[in-house]
Protein backbone atom coordinates (compact mmCIF):
# COMPACT_ATOMS: atom_id res chain seq x y z
CA UNK A 1 0.00 0.00 0.00
CA UNK A 2 2.78 2.33 0.97
CA UNK A 3 4.87 1.49 -2.07
CA UNK A 4 1.91 2.02 -4.39
CA UNK A 5 1.34 5.41 -2.83
CA UNK A 6 4.98 6.38 -3.35
CA UNK A 7 4.83 5.23 -6.95
CA UNK A 8 1.90 7.53 -7.59
CA UNK A 9 3.93 10.51 -6.37
CA UNK A 10 7.10 9.80 -8.32
CA UNK A 11 5.67 8.55 -11.63
CA UNK A 12 4.15 11.20 -13.82
CA UNK A 13 0.47 10.66 -14.46
CA UNK A 14 -0.72 10.36 -18.03
CA UNK A 15 -2.67 13.59 -17.73
CA UNK A 16 0.33 15.55 -16.45
CA UNK A 17 2.61 14.01 -19.05
CA UNK A 18 0.30 15.00 -21.91
CA UNK A 19 -0.27 18.48 -20.50
CA UNK A 20 3.44 19.09 -20.00
CA UNK A 21 4.39 17.84 -23.44
CA UNK A 22 1.63 19.90 -25.04
CA UNK A 23 2.87 22.97 -23.21
CA UNK A 24 6.49 22.37 -24.19
CA UNK A 25 5.50 21.75 -27.82
CA UNK A 26 3.56 25.01 -27.85
CA UNK A 27 6.57 26.85 -26.40
CA UNK A 28 8.93 25.44 -29.02
CA UNK A 29 6.44 26.23 -31.77
CA UNK A 30 6.10 29.76 -30.37
CA UNK A 31 9.84 30.33 -30.60
CA UNK A 32 9.73 28.96 -34.13
CA UNK A 33 7.01 31.44 -35.07
CA UNK A 34 8.96 34.35 -33.57
CA UNK A 35 12.11 33.29 -35.41
CA UNK A 36 10.11 32.95 -38.63
CA UNK A 37 8.60 36.38 -38.10
CA UNK A 38 11.99 38.05 -37.88
CA UNK A 39 13.37 35.93 -40.72
CA UNK A 40 10.45 37.06 -42.88
CA UNK A 41 11.39 40.69 -42.28
CA UNK A 42 15.02 40.09 -43.24
CA UNK A 43 14.99 41.06 -46.87
CA UNK A 44 16.77 38.65 -49.20
CA UNK A 45 16.97 41.00 -52.16
CA UNK A 46 18.88 44.21 -51.56
CA UNK A 47 18.34 47.11 -53.91
CA UNK A 48 21.72 48.49 -52.93
CA UNK A 49 24.92 49.50 -54.67
CA UNK A 50 27.41 46.64 -54.86
CA UNK A 51 30.09 47.00 -52.23
CA UNK A 52 32.85 45.97 -54.67
CA UNK A 53 33.42 48.44 -57.48
CA UNK A 54 36.02 49.46 -60.06
CA UNK A 55 37.40 52.98 -59.90
CA UNK A 56 39.61 53.05 -63.01
CA UNK A 57 43.24 52.63 -63.99
CA UNK A 58 46.07 53.47 -61.56
CA UNK A 59 47.33 56.24 -63.84
CA UNK A 60 44.08 58.14 -63.18
CA UNK A 61 45.22 58.50 -59.59
CA UNK A 62 48.70 60.08 -59.76
CA UNK A 63 50.64 60.63 -56.55
CA UNK A 64 49.00 63.44 -54.59
CA UNK A 65 45.43 62.58 -55.59
CA UNK A 66 42.70 63.04 -52.95
CA UNK A 67 39.39 62.33 -54.61
CA UNK A 68 35.91 61.88 -53.14
CA UNK A 69 33.79 59.42 -55.09
CA UNK A 70 30.38 60.78 -54.08
CA UNK A 71 28.17 57.97 -55.29
CA UNK A 72 30.44 55.29 -53.79
CA UNK A 73 30.81 57.13 -50.47
CA UNK A 74 34.55 56.67 -50.36
CA UNK A 75 37.68 58.84 -50.53
CA UNK A 76 40.51 57.53 -52.72
CA UNK A 77 44.02 58.78 -52.03
CA UNK A 78 47.31 58.20 -53.72
CA UNK A 79 50.66 59.14 -52.24
CA UNK A 80 54.25 57.90 -52.19
CA UNK A 81 53.21 54.89 -50.13
CA UNK A 82 50.56 53.79 -52.64
CA UNK A 83 46.76 53.84 -52.99
CA UNK A 84 44.31 53.76 -50.13
CA UNK A 85 40.56 54.21 -49.71
CA UNK A 86 38.82 55.66 -46.66
CA UNK A 87 35.07 55.55 -46.06
CA UNK A 88 33.32 58.92 -46.02
CA UNK A 89 30.39 57.65 -43.90
CA UNK A 90 30.61 59.02 -40.36
CA UNK A 91 30.77 56.20 -37.80
CA UNK A 92 28.50 58.16 -35.46
CA UNK A 93 25.17 58.26 -37.28
CA UNK A 94 25.97 57.79 -40.94
CA UNK A 95 26.21 61.32 -42.34
CA UNK A 96 28.71 62.05 -45.11
CA UNK A 97 31.96 63.62 -43.86
CA UNK A 98 33.82 66.24 -45.87
CA UNK A 99 37.51 67.06 -46.00
CA UNK A 100 38.59 69.89 -43.73
CA UNK A 101 41.89 71.59 -42.88
CA UNK A 102 43.53 68.63 -41.21
CA UNK A 103 41.30 65.66 -41.85
CA UNK A 104 37.57 65.08 -42.09
CA UNK A 105 34.57 66.74 -40.42
CA UNK A 106 31.02 65.47 -40.09
CA UNK A 107 28.29 68.09 -40.55
CA UNK A 108 25.67 66.38 -38.44
CA UNK A 109 27.15 66.22 -34.93
CA UNK A 110 30.58 67.71 -35.43
CA UNK A 111 32.77 64.61 -35.24
CA UNK A 112 36.35 65.35 -36.42
CA UNK A 113 38.85 62.85 -37.82
CA UNK A 114 42.52 63.31 -38.69
CA UNK A 115 43.93 62.58 -42.16
CA UNK A 116 44.15 58.87 -41.34
CA UNK A 117 40.48 58.79 -40.35
CA UNK A 118 41.16 58.53 -36.62
CA UNK A 119 38.60 60.23 -34.33
CA UNK A 120 40.08 63.34 -32.73
CA UNK A 121 36.93 64.92 -31.32
CA UNK A 122 33.17 64.61 -31.26
CA UNK A 123 30.85 61.70 -30.61
CA UNK A 124 32.03 59.26 -33.31
CA UNK A 125 32.68 55.91 -31.63
CA UNK A 126 35.11 54.47 -34.23
CA UNK A 127 37.65 55.66 -36.77
CA UNK A 128 36.69 55.85 -40.43
CA UNK A 129 37.31 52.40 -41.91
CA UNK A 130 39.96 51.85 -44.59
CA UNK A 131 38.88 49.64 -47.47
CA UNK A 132 40.79 47.00 -49.39
CA UNK A 133 42.07 47.97 -52.85
CA UNK A 134 42.99 45.28 -55.38
CA UNK A 135 43.75 45.31 -59.10
CA UNK A 136 41.57 43.52 -61.63
CA UNK A 137 43.00 41.65 -64.63
CA UNK A 138 42.01 44.55 -66.88
CA UNK A 139 44.22 46.86 -64.84
CA UNK A 140 41.42 48.73 -62.99
CA UNK A 141 41.70 49.35 -59.31
CA UNK A 142 38.89 47.68 -57.36
CA UNK A 143 37.66 48.96 -53.99
CA UNK A 144 35.97 46.44 -51.73
CA UNK A 145 33.86 48.45 -49.30
CA UNK A 146 32.84 45.23 -47.58
CA UNK A 147 36.39 44.45 -46.52
CA UNK A 148 38.15 46.61 -43.97
CA UNK A 149 41.94 46.77 -43.81
CA UNK A 150 44.05 48.12 -40.93
CA UNK A 151 44.53 51.87 -40.95
CA UNK A 152 47.70 52.77 -42.84
CA UNK A 153 47.50 49.90 -45.35
CA UNK A 154 48.60 51.35 -48.69
CA UNK A 155 49.09 49.31 -51.82
CA UNK A 156 51.17 50.00 -54.93
CA UNK A 157 49.94 49.09 -58.39
CA UNK A 158 51.00 50.22 -61.81
Amino acid sequence: MTSEHQEKETVLSRRDFLATSAFLTATVAGFGIIAGFFRFFKSDVRYEEPSVFKIGKPENFPVGTARKLDDKKVFVFSDDGGFYAISCVCTHLGCIVHTSDNGFTCPCHGSKYNTAGKVISGPAPRSLPWFEITQDVDGSLVVNAGSEVPSGTKVKYS
Binding site: F38, F41, Y47
Partner: peptide
Protein backbone atom coordinates in the same frame (compact mmCIF):
# COMPACT_ATOMS: atom_id res chain seq x y z
CA UNK B 1 18.83 48.14 -38.46
CA UNK B 2 18.22 45.46 -41.08
CA UNK B 3 14.78 44.80 -39.62
CA UNK B 4 13.83 48.45 -40.07
CA UNK B 5 15.53 49.27 -43.38
CA UNK B 6 15.27 45.90 -45.14
CA UNK B 7 18.99 46.30 -45.77
CA UNK B 8 21.83 48.50 -44.66
CA UNK B 9 20.98 51.73 -46.50
CA UNK B 10 17.58 53.46 -46.88
CA UNK B 11 15.91 52.45 -50.11
CA UNK B 12 12.61 51.52 -51.70
CA UNK B 13 11.91 48.67 -49.30
Amino acid sequence: REFFLAGMVPGKE
